[in-house]
Amino acid sequence: MKDLQDILKITRQIGWGAAEILRSYYNGTAQYPDLDIQYKQNEPVTVADLAVSQYILTQLETALGNQDFGYISEETYKSQQARNTHDLVWIIDPLDGTRDFINKTGEYAIHIALVQQTRPILAVVVVPETEKLYFATKGNGTFVETANGTSPIKLHPDKKIEDLTLVVSRSHRNEELEYLLEKLPCKNQKAIGSIGCKITAIIEQQADVYISISGKSAPKDWDMCAPELILTEAGGKFTHFDGTPLQYNTDDIHQWGGLLASNSQDHEILCQLAEKTLGSSK
């Protein structure tokens, strides 16, 4: 198997290529720009999702093969078994924030993560409309790559808990989450589309906290995996409300329950408040 840094270099190149494809659809310059929007389980899927999924999978498999790696993509996982039996598994979201892509908010992203057993060891998150690619490997920190070069990112939170800004969804909200947000001491809110863009907003210190509470549905592995590693390697935290780490490539691709991502400031306090508040509301 190739060295992890060599694999990261390949993944970054693939990330930029995927961003170019998405932007061609977003800007209407693709050869066949019609998005042909379909709905599966009330979630939109476009030809852009499918084209980028095929591109990422083909590029990774060509470069790295199938012997050492398994592959799980949002657009292909139903044709696979839920849990891949490889020790190393790629978890891919070719277009995180499809609704925002369709609605032209610019808040969509590409997630590519490599998981060893159940935890991420490599991650790339690309935000095409800001022309930024964030990457991390376990234990080596987080970096942002632009046309001007590459820079390390490290969080240095220094706010009071009541001054923290929550980054929230425009579309995926439920009564339980609304109730919790009312009870937390931090009242500032910033609405952003995709989860990748929410987490990069925390990394860029434009927001501080993101909360997910599953309702009838839940986020999937590919929503959280790459964003988690780029956040935690920058100094942030991303856990369940009870403090346990997220697990990926298990027998269930859903991330059920309450999840909290933060710049690390008051993370445990906010988790405890969330558990106590939701426990008392039932």
Rank of each mutant, 00 (worst) to 15 (best):
L60T: 08
E61S: 06
T62K: 07
T62Q: 04
A63E: 02
G65C: 04
G65Q: 05
N66Y: 03
N66S: 07
Q67G: 05
D68A: 08
D68K: 07
F69M: 03
G70P: 05
G70Y: 01
G70I: 01
G70C: 02
E74T: 02
E75V: 09
T76H: 00
Y77A: 03
K78S: 00
Q80T: 00
A82D: 01
R83Y: 04
N84G: 02
T85F: 05
H86G: 05
W90N: 00
I92Y: 10
D93V: 08
D96E: 08
T98F: 00
T98A: 02
I102Q: 02
N103W: 03
N103S: 12
K104R: 15
K104C: 11
T105Q: 05
T105W: 04
G106W: 04
Y108S: 10
Y108F: 15
A109R: 09
I112E: 00
I112H: 02
Q116N: 14
R119C: 08
L122E: 00
A123Y: 00
V124S: 02
V127A: 04
P128S: 10
P128V: 09
T130H: 13
Y134P: 08
Y134H: 10
Y134S: 06
F135E: 12
G139D: 05
N140E: 04
G141D: 07
V144A: 06
E145L: 11
S151L: 12
P152G: 03
I153V: 14
H156E: 09
H156M: 13
P157H: 15
K159N: 15
K160M: 15
E162I: 12
T165Y: 03
V167N: 03
S169K: 09
S171Q: 15
R173E: 14
N174Q: 11
E175Q: 13
E176C: 02
E176D: 02
E176T: 13
Y179P: 10
L180F: 12
L180G: 13
L181I: 15
L181H: 14
K183I: 09
L184I: 09
C186I: 07
K187A: 09
K187F: 06
N188E: 09
N188W: 05
Q189K: 12
I195W: 09
I195Y: 12
K198N: 08
I202G: 07
I202F: 09
